[in-house]
Protein backbone atom coordinates (compact mmCIF):
# COMPACT_ATOMS: atom_id res chain seq x y z
CA UNK A 1 0.00 0.00 0.00
CA UNK A 2 1.31 3.47 -0.85
CA UNK A 3 2.44 5.65 2.06
CA UNK A 4 -0.59 7.86 2.63
CA UNK A 5 1.10 10.39 4.90
CA UNK A 6 2.96 12.17 2.11
CA UNK A 7 0.12 14.32 0.79
CA UNK A 8 -2.75 13.77 -1.55
CA UNK A 9 -2.74 11.38 -4.46
CA UNK A 10 -4.48 11.74 -7.80
CA UNK A 11 -7.05 9.22 -9.04
CA UNK A 12 -7.40 7.68 -12.49
CA UNK A 13 -10.82 6.20 -13.38
CA UNK A 14 -11.37 2.83 -15.07
CA UNK A 15 -14.83 3.83 -16.28
CA UNK A 16 -14.91 6.74 -18.72
CA UNK A 17 -16.16 9.77 -16.80
CA UNK A 18 -19.34 11.47 -17.93
CA UNK A 19 -18.89 14.16 -20.57
CA UNK A 20 -20.56 17.24 -19.07
CA UNK A 21 -21.45 18.40 -22.59
CA UNK A 22 -23.74 15.39 -23.03
CA UNK A 23 -24.94 15.07 -19.41
CA UNK A 24 -28.68 14.72 -18.78
CA UNK A 25 -30.66 17.11 -16.56
CA UNK A 26 -30.79 14.47 -13.83
CA UNK A 27 -27.02 13.96 -13.98
CA UNK A 28 -26.34 17.69 -13.73
CA UNK A 29 -28.65 18.01 -10.72
CA UNK A 30 -26.92 15.09 -8.97
CA UNK A 31 -23.49 16.65 -9.60
CA UNK A 32 -24.42 19.94 -7.96
CA UNK A 33 -24.58 18.41 -4.48
CA UNK A 34 -21.01 17.14 -4.44
CA UNK A 35 -18.21 19.26 -3.02
CA UNK A 36 -16.24 20.83 -5.85
CA UNK A 37 -12.67 19.65 -5.78
CA UNK A 38 -10.18 18.89 -8.57
CA UNK A 39 -9.54 15.31 -7.46
CA UNK A 40 -13.19 14.60 -6.76
CA UNK A 41 -14.00 15.92 -10.24
CA UNK A 42 -13.18 12.68 -12.08
CA UNK A 43 -14.72 10.60 -9.31
CA UNK A 44 -18.02 12.51 -9.33
CA UNK A 45 -18.12 12.38 -13.11
CA UNK A 46 -17.85 8.58 -12.98
CA UNK A 47 -20.49 8.26 -10.24
CA UNK A 48 -22.80 10.54 -12.22
CA UNK A 49 -23.49 7.65 -14.63
CA UNK A 50 -26.00 6.66 -11.91
CA UNK A 51 -27.38 10.04 -10.89
CA UNK A 52 -30.11 8.68 -8.63
CA UNK A 53 -27.62 6.90 -6.38
CA UNK A 54 -25.21 9.86 -6.48
CA UNK A 55 -27.98 12.29 -5.56
CA UNK A 56 -28.63 10.41 -2.31
CA UNK A 57 -25.15 9.23 -1.45
CA UNK A 58 -23.56 12.70 -1.48
CA UNK A 59 -25.85 14.19 1.19
CA UNK A 60 -25.64 10.93 3.17
CA UNK A 61 -21.84 11.16 3.13
CA UNK A 62 -21.99 14.81 4.23
CA UNK A 63 -24.39 13.97 7.10
CA UNK A 64 -22.07 11.18 8.26
CA UNK A 65 -18.80 13.12 8.14
CA UNK A 66 -19.92 16.67 8.92
CA UNK A 67 -22.91 16.30 11.29
CA UNK A 68 -22.96 18.82 14.14
CA UNK A 69 -22.49 17.83 17.78
CA UNK A 70 -21.78 14.21 18.66
CA UNK A 71 -18.40 12.74 17.76
CA UNK A 72 -15.72 15.36 17.05
CA UNK A 73 -14.80 15.62 13.40
CA UNK A 74 -11.19 14.55 14.03
CA UNK A 75 -12.43 11.25 15.47
CA UNK A 76 -14.61 10.66 12.40
CA UNK A 77 -11.55 11.28 10.23
CA UNK A 78 -9.60 8.85 12.44
CA UNK A 79 -12.28 6.21 11.82
CA UNK A 80 -12.08 6.92 8.09
CA UNK A 81 -8.29 6.57 8.04
CA UNK A 82 -8.43 3.35 10.07
CA UNK A 83 -10.95 1.77 7.70
CA UNK A 84 -9.03 2.96 4.63
CA UNK A 85 -5.71 1.68 5.96
CA UNK A 86 -7.17 -1.77 6.63
CA UNK A 87 -9.00 -1.93 3.29
CA UNK A 88 -5.80 -0.77 1.57
CA UNK A 89 -7.29 2.36 -0.01
CA UNK A 90 -4.32 4.70 -0.27
CA UNK A 91 -6.32 7.48 -1.93
CA UNK A 92 -8.94 7.71 0.82
CA UNK A 93 -6.33 7.29 3.55
CA UNK A 94 -4.26 10.16 2.12
CA UNK A 95 -7.19 12.59 1.91
CA UNK A 96 -8.44 11.80 5.41
CA UNK A 97 -4.99 11.69 7.01
CA UNK A 98 -4.52 15.23 5.74
CA UNK A 99 -7.87 16.31 7.20
CA UNK A 100 -7.07 14.67 10.56
CA UNK A 101 -3.71 16.41 10.69
CA UNK A 102 -5.21 19.78 9.72
CA UNK A 103 -7.73 19.42 12.59
CA UNK A 104 -5.39 18.10 15.28
CA UNK A 105 -1.83 19.14 14.28
CA UNK A 106 -0.81 15.56 15.21
CA UNK A 107 0.72 13.98 12.09
CA UNK A 108 2.49 11.37 14.23
CA UNK A 109 -0.85 9.58 14.77
CA UNK A 110 -1.20 9.11 11.01
CA UNK A 111 2.42 7.97 10.65
CA UNK A 112 1.84 5.27 13.27
CA UNK A 113 -1.34 4.04 11.63
CA UNK A 114 0.33 4.03 8.22
CA UNK A 115 3.23 2.00 9.57
CA UNK A 116 1.48 -0.31 12.08
CA UNK A 117 -2.18 -0.45 11.02
CA UNK A 118 -4.59 -1.64 13.71
CA UNK A 119 -1.65 -2.27 16.07
CA UNK A 120 -0.57 1.39 16.13
CA UNK A 121 0.36 2.66 19.61
CA UNK A 122 -2.02 5.52 20.44
CA UNK A 123 -3.40 7.07 23.63
CA UNK A 124 -6.28 5.04 25.16
CA UNK A 125 -9.27 6.88 23.69
CA UNK A 126 -7.89 6.70 20.16
CA UNK A 127 -6.84 3.06 20.72
CA UNK A 128 -10.46 2.22 21.57
CA UNK A 129 -11.66 4.01 18.42
CA UNK A 130 -9.04 2.28 16.26
CA UNK A 131 -9.86 -1.19 17.61
CA UNK A 132 -13.59 -0.76 17.04
CA UNK A 133 -12.97 0.64 13.56
CA UNK A 134 -10.72 -2.32 12.74
CA UNK A 135 -13.18 -4.97 13.92
CA UNK A 136 -16.16 -3.31 12.24
CA UNK A 137 -14.19 -2.96 9.00
CA UNK A 138 -12.87 -6.53 8.91
CA UNK A 139 -15.73 -8.59 10.32
CA UNK A 140 -19.00 -6.87 11.24
CA UNK A 141 -20.57 -10.26 12.07
CA UNK A 142 -18.13 -10.55 14.97
CA UNK A 143 -19.30 -7.29 16.60
CA UNK A 144 -21.29 -7.88 19.78
CA UNK A 145 -22.51 -5.97 22.86
CA UNK A 146 -19.11 -6.34 24.56
CA UNK A 147 -17.50 -4.18 21.87
CA UNK A 148 -19.29 -1.09 23.20
CA UNK A 149 -17.58 -1.35 26.60
CA UNK A 150 -14.09 -0.07 25.66
CA UNK A 151 -15.65 2.94 23.89
CA UNK A 152 -17.94 3.72 26.83
CA UNK A 153 -15.01 3.33 29.22
CA UNK A 154 -13.29 6.12 27.30
CA UNK A 155 -16.33 8.34 27.73
CA UNK A 156 -18.00 8.03 24.33
CA UNK A 157 -21.76 8.53 24.46
CA UNK A 158 -24.12 6.36 22.45
CA UNK A 159 -24.54 9.18 19.92
CA UNK A 160 -20.76 9.37 19.51
CA UNK A 161 -20.54 5.59 19.11
CA UNK A 162 -23.29 5.74 16.48
CA UNK A 163 -21.44 8.58 14.69
CA UNK A 164 -18.23 6.53 14.72
CA UNK A 165 -20.10 3.49 13.39
CA UNK A 166 -21.52 5.55 10.51
CA UNK A 167 -18.09 7.02 9.65
CA UNK A 168 -16.32 3.65 9.62
CA UNK A 169 -19.21 2.01 7.73
CA UNK A 170 -19.22 4.86 5.19
CA UNK A 171 -15.60 4.07 4.38
CA UNK A 172 -16.48 0.43 3.74
CA UNK A 173 -18.51 2.06 0.94
CA UNK A 174 -16.13 4.85 -0.11
CA UNK A 175 -13.03 2.65 -0.20
CA UNK A 176 -14.79 0.11 -2.41
CA UNK A 177 -15.82 2.76 -4.91
CA UNK A 178 -12.35 4.30 -5.02
CA UNK A 179 -10.53 0.97 -5.23
CA UNK A 180 -12.73 -0.68 -7.82
CA UNK A 181 -13.69 2.15 -10.19
CA UNK A 182 -10.15 3.46 -10.58
CA UNK A 183 -6.68 3.63 -9.08
CA UNK A 184 -4.50 6.14 -7.22
CA UNK A 185 -1.67 7.72 -9.17
CA UNK A 186 1.39 9.81 -8.41
CA UNK A 187 0.94 12.61 -5.86
CA UNK A 188 -0.56 15.87 -7.05
CA UNK A 189 1.98 18.56 -7.80
CA UNK A 190 2.81 21.48 -5.49
CA UNK A 191 0.49 24.43 -5.80
CA UNK A 192 -2.64 22.28 -5.90
CA UNK A 193 -5.49 24.27 -4.33
CA UNK A 194 -6.22 21.37 -1.97
Amino acid sequence: MRDFTQGELDWRPWVAPLDLNTASERQLIALKVTPSNRAVGAYSLVLAHDPEALGERSPLYNAVMFGTKGLPRADRELGAVAASRLNGCAYCAAVHALRFTQLTKEPEVMVRIQRDGAGAALEPRRRAILEYAAKLTRDPAAIGPADAAPLRAQGLTDLEILDLTHAVAMFAWANRLMQTLGEPTAPVREGNPL
Partner: peptide, 18 residues
Protein backbone atom coordinates in the same frame (compact mmCIF):
# COMPACT_ATOMS: atom_id res chain seq x y z
CA UNK B 1 -22.85 1.71 -5.45
CA UNK B 2 -24.92 -1.30 -4.47
CA UNK B 3 -21.92 -3.27 -3.23
CA UNK B 4 -20.72 -0.22 -1.30
CA UNK B 5 -24.15 0.45 0.20
CA UNK B 6 -24.78 -3.11 1.44
CA UNK B 7 -21.30 -3.24 2.98
CA UNK B 8 -22.12 0.10 4.69
CA UNK B 9 -25.58 -1.08 5.72
CA UNK B 10 -24.33 -4.31 7.30
CA UNK B 11 -21.84 -2.38 9.45
CA UNK B 12 -24.37 0.21 10.57
CA UNK B 13 -26.63 -2.69 11.53
CA UNK B 14 -23.82 -4.32 13.50
CA UNK B 15 -23.31 -1.07 15.44
CA UNK B 16 -27.03 -0.66 16.15
CA UNK B 17 -27.27 -4.24 17.44
CA UNK B 18 -24.23 -3.65 19.63
Amino acid sequence: QLIGYVNFQARVLAGLRM
